[in-house]
C-alpha cells in the first residue's frame, strides 16, 4: 500500500474524529440508561456517574410497571410490525414477480404506478385515511395501522424485489414449467427461497420506521387498548413529566427492544444499505 495513504498521523486523526463522533452518538443513550437506575437525589447530584451501591434504585421501573401497561403496548407494537412486514413481503413479492416475470400490456405503466408511492409520503393523505377508517369502523383497531403500513411499505418493496427477481435464472423456472409445476408453485417453491436475502433487506428497512412511527398511532389508534410502544411511552412520559425516575425508566424500556432488534439485524441492515438496494 502506498505510503501517502498510510500516514500514521492521518490514521490517528481519523480515529480521533470517529471516536469523538461515536461518543456524541452514544452519549444521550448512555446518560438515560445509567440514570434510570439511580435514586432521584443521585440523578440530580451526579448525573454523569454510574450507579453505585448507594445511589442504585429501581423505583422508576416500579412506577412504570404499576402505572403504564407497557407489556400491552409492546405486544401491540409487535403485532402491528410483524403483521405489516408479513403482508408487505407477501404482497410485494407477488407483485414484483408478476412485473418481472411476465410480459403483459400495461406492465411498465403498472410498475410506474406502484413506484409513485416511493417519493410521496402517505401522511399527505391522512385526512382521507382517517375518514375511511372511521367509516369502515377500523379506527382504534390494530388493523388500521397494519393496512396503512402495508400500503406505504409496498412501493419500495416491489421496486427492490423486482430488481432482484430479474436476476433469477430463467432456465430454472422453465425447467419447473416443463416438470408441470404451476406458476404459483414456481413462485413459492423456486423464486421466493432464492430472493430471501432481498426480502430480509426489505423487512429490515421497513421494520424500524413502522416500530417508531408516532403519527398514525396518534391519529388512528390512540385508544388505551391499541397504543403502540412509541405512542404509549409518549403519553406516559407526558403524564409523568415531573417524575424523573419514571421518565428515565420509561425511556430506557422503550430503547431496549429497538436496541435488541438492531443488534440482531444490524449486519443485514448495513449490508442492505451498502449493497445499493436503495439506489
Amino acid at each position: 500500500m502506498n505510503k501517502a495513504r498510510r500516514n500514521p498521523l492521518n490514521i490517528a486523526a481519523a480515529h480521533a474524529i470517529l471516536l469523538t463522533y461515536t461518543a456524541i452518538a452514544l452519549f444521550p443513550v448512555f446518560v438515560i440508561l445509567i440514570n434510570s437506575f439511580k435514586t432521584r437525589k443521585a440523578i440530580f447530584r451526579e448525573p454523569l456517574t454510574l450507579p453505585n451501591e448507594e445511589s442504585f434504585s429501581l423505583i422508576g421501573y416500579q412506577t412504570v410497571m404499576q402505572q403504564g401497561d407497557f407489556f400491552l403496548y409492546f405486544q401491540n407494537s409487535m403485532i402491528v410490525t410483524v403483521t405489516s412486514l408479513f403482508f408487505i413481503l407477501l404482497f410485494g413479492a407477488m407483485a414484483a414477480f408478476a412485473l418481472s416475470e411476465y410480459r403483459f400490456r400495461g406492465n411498465t405503466l403498472m410498475g410506474l404506478y406502484l413506484a409513485l408511492g416511493i417519493m410521496i409520503p402517505i401522511r399527505i393523505g391522512t385526512v382521507a385515511i382517517l375518514e375511511m377508517m372511521v367509516a369502515s369502523g377500523l379506527v382504534n383497531t390494530l388493523w388500521a395501522l397494519i393496512l396503512v403500513y402495508t400500503a406505504s411499505g409496498l412501493p419500495l418493496a416491489v421496486f427492490i424485489l423486482s430488481e432482484f427477481m430479474r436476476q433469477v435464472s430463467d432456465d430454472l423456472k422453465n425447467a419447473g414449467r416443463i416438470d408441470g409445476l404451476s406458476e404459483y408453485t414456481i413462485f413459492f417453491r423456486l423464486v421466493v427461497p432464492l430472493v430471501r436475502p432481498a426480502m430480509a433487506t426489505v423487512a429490515v428497512f421497513n421494520m424500524i420506521p413502522i416500530w417508531n412511527d408516532l403519527w398514525f398511532p396518534l391519529i388512528l389508534a390512540s385508544s388505551e387498548a391499541t397504543k403502540t410502544l412509541t405512542l404509549g411511552s409518549q403519553v406516559f412520559i407526558g403524564q409523568f413529566v415531573t417524575d424523573w425516575n419514571a421518565v428515565l425508566s420509561a425511556l430506557s424500556m422503550a430503547i431496549l427492544p429497538v436496541m435488541v432488534l438492531y443488534v440482531i439485524f444490524s449486519r443485514q441492515l448495513i449490508r442492505g444499505i451498502t449493497s445499493g438496494a436503495v439506489k
Partner: peptide, 19 residues
C-alpha cells in the same frame, strides 16, 4: 399475483391521497 398489492396500495394510499 398483482391484485393484493395493487388493491391495498390503491385503497389505502393512492385513493386517500387524491381524496
Amino acid at each position: 399475483f398483482l391484485a393484493p398489492a395493487v388493491l391495498v396500495y390503491t385503497a389505502v394510499m393512492i385513493f386517500p391521497l387524491f381524496n
